[in-house]
Amino acid sequence: MPRKPRKIFVPGRLCLFGEHGDRAGGHRSINPALEKGYTLSVGTHQGIYAQVKPHPTPLILRPSFSDGTRLEPIQLPMDRQTMLHSTKKGGCFSYAAGVADYSLTHYRVQGLEIDNYGFYE
């Protein structure tokens, strides 16, 4: 039985210094030789609205931008080689591919369908 999509809101944040220091802290738990880092960040009322649901195989992204522009959906095979290549390539989808790779590795998901349908500014 197909699962219903979940609507989510991801709040924004402003990093005053130490960009991604909180997220990167997880790497220090694996490699204690890394220096301790710090970050100062604050949440904002801005954010992204999306609908997310599992998919049997690929990663499907339906992006939109704050001006209302929608891009054609992108569909990528949900495998580590594709995700790592897309992450290293850079561009609009590199961050999403990195998150998908992390999810694939740590949570054993098969596929995801993400529709970023709006913004709150």
Rank of each mutant, 00 (worst) to 15 (best):
P2K: 12
K4E: 15
K4V: 12
P5D: 05
P5Q: 04
R6P: 00
K7N: 14
I8A: 07
F9N: 01
V10R: 01
P11H: 00
G12S: 01
C15D: 15
L16P: 02
L16K: 03
F17I: 06
G18L: 03
E19G: 14
H20D: 06
H20M: 03
H20T: 08
G21T: 06
D22E: 09
R23H: 14
R23V: 15
R23A: 12
A24M: 11
G25Y: 01
G25P: 01
G26F: 05
G26E: 08
H27S: 13
R28L: 00
S29R: 15
N31L: 11
P32Q: 14
P32W: 07
A33V: 09
A33Y: 02
L34N: 02
E35S: 08
K36L: 12
L40N: 06
L40K: 06
L40A: 12
V42I: 13
G43M: 12
G43L: 11
G47T: 02
G47Y: 01
G47L: 00
G47K: 01
I48M: 01
I48K: 01
I48A: 02
Y49S: 04
A50Q: 00
A50W: 00
Q51T: 11
Q51I: 08
V52Q: 06
K53Q: 15
K53F: 04
K53T: 14
H55F: 05
H55N: 14
P56F: 04
P56I: 12
P56D: 09
T57G: 15
P58R: 10
L59D: 03
L59R: 05
R62N: 08
P63F: 06
P63H: 05
P63Q: 07
P63K: 10
P63M: 13
S66W: 03
D67P: 00
D67V: 06
G68E: 01
G68L: 04
R70S: 00
R70I: 11
L71M: 09
I74E: 08
Q75V: 15
L76R: 10
P77H: 07
P77Y: 02
D79E: 15
Q81A: 13
Q81Y: 09
T82P: 00
T82W: 04
M83K: 10
L84M: 11
L84E: 15
H85I: 15
T87P: 04
K88G: 13
K89F: 03
K89Q: 12
C92L: 12
Y95E: 08
A96Y: 06
A97I: 11
V99E: 03
A100L: 01
Y102A: 15
S103M: 13
S103K: 13
L104D: 14
T105P: 02
T105M: 07
T105L: 13
Y107S: 11
V109S: 09
V109F: 04
Q110M: 07
E113V: 08
I114V: 11
N116K: 10
Y117R: 04
Y117M: 07
F119T: 06
F119Y: 04
Y120M: 10
Y120L: 14
E121Y: 05
